[in-house]
């Protein structure tokens, strides 16, 4: 009898081990698939020794796997509380510019963007300045202060194109944006035709705007 119980116990243990191994294997495969998906969405560093680079040293830019793909849709609020969707710019060339009030390179780039937006707007070009400044969503008073800070920062930089807040909420579909400034250039068909990561030159920005407009290709 005792031997019977022992055998049954051993069999149960082995079955439990098998189940655990199977579950662990499934989890492992699931994580691997997720990791591969994340890698596919990540930007890749590419050395750029172009003469138009922003600094005397070679500047590292990144290529994005989103180039050539439809721009992910989103709807964000302006500091005034109005909702604005990417879809409302259908048929126009759009630059989505991720920036922050604490980002010094963004402050260098923004005056160039303001000029370029004025220059190419008649041709159907728009810029959306998506702020990634932290927002204290749990505290209404702090939230209002944060939003006011973004509005103030945009005003000081003389940004006269749409400013959107809570940019962190759309960072993931845009390849987990985690360096700033970052820009995605979208053509009139809604496809991303270029991306730039970090401070680049005004010439580079203009070149990407022309790509979005369908010129100089």
């Amino acid at each position: 009898m005792k031997r019977n119980v022992l055998v049954v116990a051993v069999v149960v243990c082995i079955l439990a081990l098998l189940s655990l191994a199977g579950w662990a294997n499934w989890q492992n495969r699931k994580q691997l698939a997720a990791h591969q998906q994340a890698l596919a969405n990540q930007a890749v560093l590419v050395a750029d020794n172009s003469a138009t680079s922003a600094s005397a040293d070679s500047v590292l830019h990144m290529s994005s796997p989103l180039v050539g793909k439809p721009a992910p849709a989103f709807t964000l609020n302006t500091p005034q509380g109005d909702k604005l969707s990417l879809a409302s710019f259908k048929g126009k060339a759009v630059q989505i510019n991720f920036w922050a009030t604490w980002c010094a390179p963004c402050k260098i780039e923004t005056p160039w963007l303001v000029e370029l937006e004025k220059q190419y707007k008649p041709q159907g070009f728009e810029i959306l300045a998506v702020s990634v400044d932290d927002l204290d969503k749990d505290d209404p008073k702090l939230l209002a202060k944060d939003i006011a800070g973004v509005a103030k920062g945009a005003k000081e930089l003389h940004i006269d194109y749409p400013v959107l807040i809570d940019g962190d909420s759309i960072a993931k579909p845009y390849g987990d944006v985690d360096v700033y400034p970052t820009s995605f250039f979208i053509n009139r068909s809604g496809k991303i035709v270029a991306a730039s990561f970090g401070l680049t030159s005004k010439d580079d920005l203009e070149s990407n705007i022309k790509k979005a407009l369908g010129e100089g290709m």
Partner: peptide, 8 residues
Amino acid sequence: CSSDTCMP
């Protein structure tokens, strides 16, 4: 930040 990018 570096000379041309900033991190959160």
